[in-house]
Write a protein that binds this DNA or RNA. Structure first.
Lengths: 252, 252
DNA sequence: TTCTTGAGTTAGAGGTTCTAACTGGAAGGT
DNA sequence: ACCTTCCAGTTAGAACCTCTAACTCAAGAA
């Protein structure tokens, strides 16, 4: 992702022969081609998991696959294009796990654990999305669409849970009323109410929007610090910190 | 930071002649050497700010300074060693701004704004510390010491503020009492009480520790997402989101 | 069967980090 | 004042990298 061109993302060279026999989706060559492409990506993921995305080498991948470097340029126009596709796949994977969790009836807590599990399964894949950005790089519309899809699942889960879990943990006495007021929340919600063009006309209330954003950023805070190893020197269990932050998020 | 050796961090080659005239700290050569070193680092920061740390090129720096590539190896043993030193400087810079803010009487909110200001001033510097980690890399004792120093100022500010700001925002009715209970906080604080070997015997209570950690991770969540541009598509003001998260952090 | 397509090859340009050997001037010791 | 040692910066080159151009040659299509 060094040179940062838009990266087209429409796989290597072959282009002209789009229509030959019209139908017939899988010619043997196409199948071979698709298989090699996925094999390249598998090796790429393996390399990324081992040494990070910046250390990804097309030459090394080619060598592992028993061919020479330039051969890969039949399948990906450049190193950046390959990485861009891996980024898109990472987004797709996260969106799918979110969707699957939601389909299984997961609430916000369920999504949270799905997120952490997904992140821990392959830290470098998480950082491919949420790690250090390349200054000039602008993600293709492809990934912004998937990012919106992820946000949508999050918003769905946010509206599903009652704004305050009915009486809450403390229960009983006093309860409701202004219950702590929280004017700053109201303030930011008012701001959100005026700047919610991005939510695709979702039925979420401004309070839901705020909670979804808080959910996202707080969990990202815990998870990214954990994955980056910033807690390793300290003796506590990151999972318990995560659980505490999550509970704090749901308790309101 | 590709190859990930410990990186020694004791500048280039010259080593034997440590004691010549015993005193006399600044020989003209030493001063020249120090000046060139800082000049190299200045160009490095400039490059990092422009294209990220992964795009940092010793050759390019040398060319900018009017010399050939290998000359820089008189000053830094390797590209990794230079980057490691930049990372250390970044930590040092953050620790200093924190210390300065605290010396100016800044409370937790003050530290929060100091952090965000520092991050916005040079996003890539922030990511040099909190961005994508290199898998095999282990930070030298140097930076872990500075990280501990940062945590210490944070803990100082955490103990300075009363556990609950006296009556809180809502004020008056009901107030205190179990005030929402928050058993999950207690739970994690109990865990922290048993795993606080890392805090250097700080006088902070487990509740202070928990709040310092929450402060750190939540603000990192907001700031890193903002710096990485994950909010750009959405129309809201990141500063207001930051303020809301900060207020939520202080209101308890 | 012939023709065309394209996967993979080698050659090479230009980039990188980094090592080795050399040069020349400045600093230090006598 | 001379001599010696040190060292900043040089060139040469090895070993990597991405990526282009031209060429094979086998497999699929006609």
């Amino acid at each position: 992702m060094e040179s940062c061109r838009p990266a087209e993302a429409d796989e290597g060279l072959p282009r002209k022969k789009v229509v030959t026999v019209a139908r017939n989706a899988a010619s043997p060559r196409d199948r071979y081609r698709a298989q090699v492409r996925t094999e390249i990506k598998e090796h790429a993921w393996q390399q990324i998991a081992g040494a990070g995305a910046s250390a990804l080498s097309l030459n090394a991948i080619a060598k592992q696959m028993g061919m020479t470097g330039p051969a890969l340029y039949r399948y990906f126009g450049s190193r950046d294009e390959l990485i861009t596709e891996l980024v898109t796949d990472a987004y797709r994977s996260l969106a799918d796990t979110f969707r699957a969790a939601a389909a299984d009836g997961a609430d916000l807590a369920g999504l949270a654990h799905a997120l952490r599990g997904w992140a821990l399964a392959d830290p470098q894949r998480y950082f491919l999305i949420y790690g250090t950005p390349v200054p000039g790089y602008h993600a293709p519309d492809d990934v912004t669409a998937i990012a919106a899809e992820i946000m949508e699942t999050l918003l769905d889960a946010a509206v599903a849970v009652p704004a305050r879990p009915a009486g809450a943990a403390g229960a009983g006495e006093g309860a409701e009323k202004g219950a702590h007021e929280r004017s700053y929340e109201k303030s930011f919600e008012a701001h959100l109410a005026e700047h919610r063009s991005w939510d695709g006309g979702h039925r979420a209330t401004p309070a839901d929007l705020r909670r979804a954003l808080a959910f996202w950023s707080r969990l990202h805070g815990v998870v990214s610090l954990e994955l980056a190893g910033h807690f390793t020197g300290m003796g506590f269990d990151a999972a318990q910190f995560f659980a505490a932050e999550l509970d704090g998020l749901l308790d309101r």
